[in-house]
């Protein structure tokens, strides 16, 4: 089965927008009352900063079609997740979150890394030089 590169690229970009939107939307939980009914993810101020940065880099990756930006966003998400997982429950907690923050950041990180992989061969073919076109 052959895959149409252009539709593949569109699918990757759309997923990039979706993950970026999810990261940005999760920052709203910072303002939510601390109740189990709403706080699905613990979002502290440092986690807000990480999520906004991830969302911005992911958005740029989707907009510009630069898969390396997905890799960057994914790498940041995974590093932040591991840091959160190692520190939470201890006396030092730079990100101020808990296991839910680590899991959510891991999800975004894994997602962006998967998009980088998906985008590797799905670039839109460049237009032929004008001499070839003629």
């Amino acid at each position: 089965m052959t895959v149409e590169p252009r539709s593949d690229t569109r699918r990757v970009s759309r997923a990039g927008y979706g993950l970026s939107a999810a990261g940005a939307a999760a920052t709203l939980l910072f303002f939510a009352p601390s109740s189990d009914a709403i706080q699905f993810v613990k979002v502290s101020l440092p986690v807000v900063a990480v999520l906004l940065f991830l969302a911005l880099v992911g958005l740029l990756g989707a907009r510009l079609g630069r898969s390396v930006l997905f890799l960057l966003a994914g790498g940041i998400g995974l590093i932040a997740s591991i840091l959160q997982l190692v520190q939470f429950g201890g006396s030092t907690n730079w990100l101020g979150g808990n296991g839910s923050s680590a899991a959510f950041l891991a999800g975004l990180g894994i997602g962006f890394c998967a998009l980088w992989y998906a985008a590797l061969d799905s670039h839109v073919p460049r237009a032929a030089p004008s001499s070839e076109r003629a």
Binding site: D36, Q39, F40, V41, K42, F88, G89, G90, N98, G99, S100, S101, A102, A103, F104, G107
Partner: peptide, 9 residues
């Protein structure tokens, strides 16, 4: 994800 939040090491 939420249930990972209260399992505190």
């Amino acid at each position: 994800i939420q249930s990972a939040g209260w399992k505190t090491p």
